[in-house]
């Protein structure tokens, strides 16, 4: 009996803490999602969409990675990616390599790259939220900045 109560309490605690409304985001831990890149604010939407497409292709061409979520706001591009399990030993090296090559290929924009799963999760969530019309640019930008802040946090 005690065990059952305990289980129920734990389940309630877990579901109670849940703040994810989307369905796709929680699943991104277990499966490859290949989310479409999003644009928040841009002066040339068409050009940027093309740019993002090409960046996504470039990133996913890396054999050490297997999934990438990209979002662009003004001149900042956030690239979150998942590293293949056995390549996780070289995580720092991969990050440096990716950032350097992206900066070389696309010199006009600022890149923020992260292999952190939390960043990936948040980017996917941002993608999904942007699909709804109530989620305006201001909100999106705020969330984007939050993610960038989160990425800078170290401890």
């Amino acid at each position: 009996m005690k065990k059952i109560i305990g289980m129920v309490l734990i389940i309630m605690l877990i579901t109670g803490c849940s703040k994810h409304e989307s369905e796709e985001a929680p699943l991104s831990l277990v499966k490859v999602t290949h989310p479409t890149p999003s644009l928040i604010q841009s002066d040339h939407r068409d050009d940027d969409a093309e740019l993002l497409q090409s960046i996504e292709k470039d990133v996913e061409d890396y054999k050490e990675l297997y999934d990438a979520a990209i979002v662009k706001n003004k001149d900042q591009i956030l690239v979150a990616y998942k590293v293949k399990h056995l390549q996780r030993f070289h995580m720092k090296k991969i990050e440096k390599k990716l950032k350097d090559s992206l900066e070389k290929d696309y010199p006009d924009v600022e890149f923020i790259v992260s292999s952190d799963f939390k960043i990936f999760l948040e980017v996917v969530e941002l993608h999904e939220k942007m699909k709804s019309p109530e989620f305006d640019v201001k909100k999106a930008e705020k969330k984007f900045n939050n993610i960038v802040e989160l990425q800078k946090e170290l401890t």
């Binding site: 877990i14 803490c17 849940s18 703040k19 994810h20 929680p26 831990l29 952190d116 799963f117 939390k118 960043i119 999760l121 989160l150 990425q151 946090e153 170290l154 401890t155």
Partner: peptide, 17 residues
Amino acid sequence: TYFYIYFFNFTEQTASN
């Protein structure tokens, strides 16, 4: 760790604490 990543504002870096 995943619990803290999913349900709280922790990244892989910070969730270890």
